[in-house]
Design a protein around this nucleic acid. Sequence first.
DNA 1: AATAAATTATTAGGCAACCTAAATATATAT
DNA 2: ATATATATTTAGGTTGCCTAATAATTTATT
Lengths: 151, 151
Amino acid sequence: MKNRNPVVHKLLESFVQFHKLNWKQSPMVSLKSSEIMVLFSIKKLMNPDTPGIKMSDISNALRVASPTITQLINSLETNGFVERTMDKEDRRAVRVKLTDKGEGAIEKASESFYEAFNGLAEFLGEENSNLLADLLSQTFTYFEKRKKEIF
Amino acid sequence: MKNRNPVVHKLLESFVQFHKLNWKQSPMVSLKSSEIMVLFSIKKLMNPDTPGIKMSDISNALRVASPTITQLINSLETNGFVERTMDKEDRRAVRVKLTDKGEGAIEKASESFYEAFNGLAEFLGEENSNLLADLLSQTFTYFEKRKKEIF
DNA sequence: AATAAATTATTAGGCAACCTAAATATATAT
DNA sequence: ATATATATTTAGGTTGCCTAATAATTTATT
């Protein structure tokens, strides 16, 4: 990394630092942050005229392998945050929906996420917040493209 | 997360996306990225008139608990990337330094990191790259401060 | 219709990157 | 001399993922 473009070095340093950041801090003592992410994505995908979300849809939404979702849903189900039901049209599929407890949990989590990120948005200022979000998305695009090109 | 400030939502979304990003992709098949980070920090801390870096210094530099460093150094040592020596002034301490193999490895890793981040800097443009690095650092500051205030 | 191929989810087992608590050895302070 | 502090290691655990193999069912092909 020697005597090269200092911007590059600065970028790398900030990435390292940022990466350590635990911004996903679970506000619910009883839920891991991966579980909260699952609840969020169920909430987001859910619509009133379906009996629940398919495992594979959660897996796609979170870009996580399906056995991972199985495990997370197992734990969420045994703790009463979600319910599994059989899909009547496709008996291979499983439909998952939030219980009232689940709804309550994401209500709280949502509150606390909002508070944290609202604080950040205030701290950075609206313009910078927008900029940051855009730059992060661009960075994501860059690395995804790069990955495809290399392999 | 309903009908609230859209900037906040956008920030959160971009964080989620960015967080998944595997920008630390280890270029050396035989080294995990945590191990590369250790090698980097040894290289950075090293100075010609010491016989090596103390475990605790690596641990502080990377902000990782010392048993974690012990494990990483164990593996790096058995694979010949670093060498442990006793500290003659303080016999509790251990000094770690890079072997030639270790130097070679971080040379290559450094090359490949630089290439990736240089590409990013070009992709974003110099001004935006600087901005991104600054905003990430500010974000780090914000969350660190928040953590302290809450607990 | 029968068989093959694809899809959905689960089970089993593993890995990376961390952590804490307790143990060991040595150094420093009282 | 004893207590306390520091440096490292050992032992064992957690989180968040993964792949390969299996079971059940659906869809496509002959």
